[in-house]
Amino acid sequence: MILDQVVTGLLTGLIYGLLALGLSVIFGVMRIVNFAHGEMSVVAMYAAWAAARYLGLDPLLSLIPIAAIFFGAGYLLQRGLIQPFVSRPDYMQFILLISVALILTNGALLVFGPEARGIQVDYAFDSYEIGTFLIDKVRLLAAGAALTLTGLLLAFFRFTLTGKAIRAAADNRTGAQVIGLDIGKLYAVTFGIGTASLGAAGVLMALLNDAIPRLGPELTLLSFVIVIVGGLGSMTGALAGGVLIGVSEALAGTLLQPSLKSMFSFALLVLILLLRPQGLLGERS
């Protein structure tokens, strides 16, 4: 029973990891905290819902086009709105993205209404029996997709030229400019990648949860908790933090009252902010 919960939490945590990865990438490179992170992923949930409802597309199929659109939207958002704020005080960046969050959440409320929108796939109730475990097919597929995308992203940053350039810009902005890297473009690509990963995570979450506007702030806070646990700016940390939070939420949900789940997350957030601000995995600078 408890082990089943651990596996469920682990699978959900992989999606959380992908979601938080977007936040961590954007912060790690641009030092901007995307306060609209959860709200943006809720928009992706609605997009997945609309694709399923009106086009009959399985979210696992709409995943790639939606992520691509999100990449473009993120790229443009960075170019058009956020770029001048990179060098401004951090509270101003925060407020800018709060305004984006307000617009997205309430825009979703205006367009889709307050009702929950759920996707029914025909394998919704299938499950696999592996040994003594009973695993939902949907959750397994979504988690597998999340893990694949996370792996691809990590590989992108490690092996491709653009990925390396972005990491160089993150390490040393001036140095990167000196050797002729186009920082503005790299930042826009980074924001695009961060947005694409939160978009993909949103689509995958739409398989497991109903889309509802007020989920936005919750997911933003959840992403914060995860990246703080894993170390703000660390990519592998985001994945590990996602799994850790996924599992502990699932366990807290069984062992404690379900509503105390988030209490646990926030208590963890406070402890880590105070005692290990670099995160459980990050290095102290």
């Binding site: 307000l102 617009i103 959440t105 309430n106 825009g107 979703a108 209404g113 307050p114 506007p213």
Partner: peptide, 8 residues
């Protein structure tokens, strides 16, 4: 139907 219009 205007829920959300104000905060928007």
């Amino acid at each position: 139907q205007s829920a959300g219009i104000k905060p928007f």
